[in-house]
Nucleic acid binder design. Structure first.
Lengths: 195, 195
DNA sequence: AAAAAAAGAATGAACGTTCATTTTTGTCTA
DNA sequence: TAGACAAAAATGAACGTTCATTCTTTTTTT
C-alpha cells in the first residue's frame, strides 16, 4: 500500500503543477522540465505516469472537469423540484468558479483552445448530464423554456465564466448580493415566461 | 506607393495566416516557418514587419479586436435611444460572432489564455467604450439595471461567445429565430424591471 | 548603381523524450 | 529475522528535433 500511496502522491503533484503552470504560462510555455521541477520529480518520471505531454494535459483536463461537476452536483438530488434543483446546482457552479478559480481558469483555457484533443473534450462533456436531465424534466413540466440545452447553458451558466475571468483579472469584485442577483437573472432567462 | 502597397499586402497576409494557424493549432503549435509559408513569404521577412513572434500575435490581437468593435458599432450612433442602441449593437455582435467566427474564435482564445501580454489586452478593451457609455446613459435614464458594466456584459453579451463555440464545434446550429430569442433574453437581463 | 526588401540557409537554444544507471521496495531463503 | 536478490520506480544526462531568430546573399525598386 505504501508503494501505491507514494505513486498517487506523485501523480497528484504532477497534475497540480500542470494546472498551475498552464494557468500562468499557457500550454506552449510550460516545458515538461518545469512541471517536473515543481512536482519535485525527475522529467523522466513523468513518463512513468503519463504517455507524453499531450496525455498529461488530457488527463489533467478530465480530472479537473470531474472535480468541477462533482462540486456542482454535490448538494443536488433528482427528487428536488426543477426550480430548487437548478438553484442548487447554479449556486454551486458559481461557488466553484469564484472560489476554486485555479481549476475553473484551467477549464476555461482548455475549452477555448486546441490544447485538448477531441476525445477528451467529449469525455469531459458527459459529466454535465444531470443538469441536462433536469432541464429536460423542466421542459416536460412546462417550467423551463422549450429551447435547446445549449441555449439554456449559454443564458444561465456561461455568464459565470466571464465574471470569473473579470474577477481574476482584478477588474472588479463580486459580492453575495451580486451573485444572488446574477442567479435571479439566470433563472429568469431559462424559466418559461409568466407561469 | 507601389512599395507601400506591397508591404501592406504582405503584412495582411501574415496577420491572416497567424489567425488561421493559431485557431487551428494554438499559439504553441504554430511555428514562424508555417506562418511564413502560408503567407508566401520567407521566415526572415516576418521580422521586417514585426519585432518577434510575441509582437506579431499582440498586433494581430489588437487588429482583430478593432475589427470586432468597428463591426459591432457600425450601425450605431449616439443619438439612438438606449433600447434601440443596445439592440443595434447586440445584433451586430451576434452577427460578428456567428459569421466572422474565425476572428471571433481567435479573440476567444486570446481572452482565455496568457497568449497576449497585459498592455495589449488593455489596449483591446478600450474599443468597447461606446457600449459602456450607452449603458451609463441607460442607467441615468432609469432604463438599465443599476449594476456594474461587467455584470451587464456577462448577462447580455458573453452568452454569445459560448454559442459561437458550440456552433463552431458543430454541436448545434443557431437560426434567426433563436437569435431573436437570445436577444430578448439579453435585453430582459439588463433592462430595469417592469418599467 | 545605390538602397531597400526579401530570401534561404545557418545558428544556437530549448524542448520532448529516451537511455543507462541507481535507488527503493518487496519477497524469499536460510 | 537477516540478508540476498529480483522487480519496480526513479533519476540525471544525453539525444535528436524543432523552433525563433539572425546572417549573408540575391532580387527588386527607385
Amino acid at each position: 500500500m505504501a508503494k501505491l500511496q507514494k505513486s498517487i502522491d506523485k501523480r497528484n503533484a504532477l497534475i497540480k503543477a500542470t494546472i498551475e503552470l498552464v494557468n500562468n504560462n499557457g500550454f506552449h510555455a510550460t516545458p515538461m522540465s518545469k512541471i517536473a521541477k515543481m512536482a519535485k520529480v525527475s522529467p523522466a518520471t513523468i513518463y512513468l505516469y503519463f504517455e507524453n505531454k499531450q496525455d498529461l494535459v488530457n488527463k489533467t483536463y478530465i480530472e479537473v472537469k470531474a472535480k468541477y461537476t462533482d462540486y456542482a452536483f454535490a448538494n443536488y438530488n433528482e427528487s428536488m423540484s426543477v426550480k430548487t434543483g437548478f438553484e442548487t446546482i447554479w449556486k454551486r457552479i458559481a461557488e466553484f468558479k469564484l472560489n476554486e478559480y485555479e481549476h475553473a481558469m484551467f477549464l476555461a483555457q482548455c475549452d477555448n483552445t486546441p490544447m485538448i484533443d477531441e476525445p477528451s473534450l467529449k469525455e469531459g462533456i458527459k459529466h454535465l448530464q444531470p443538469l441536462l436531465d433536469l432541464w429536460e424534466r423542466g421542459k416536460q413540466e412546462g417550467i423551463i423554456k422549450p429551447v435547446s440545452n445549449y441555449l439554456l447553458y449559454a443564458y444561465a451558466v456561461s455568464p459565470l465564466s466571464f465574471l470569473m475571468i473579470a474577477q481574476k483579472r482584478g477588474a472588479f469584485q463580486l459580492d453575495k448580493e451580486q451573485i444572488e442577483e446574477a442567479y435571479q437573472s439566470a433563472w429568469s432567462s431559462i424559466k418559461k415566461c409568466e407561469q
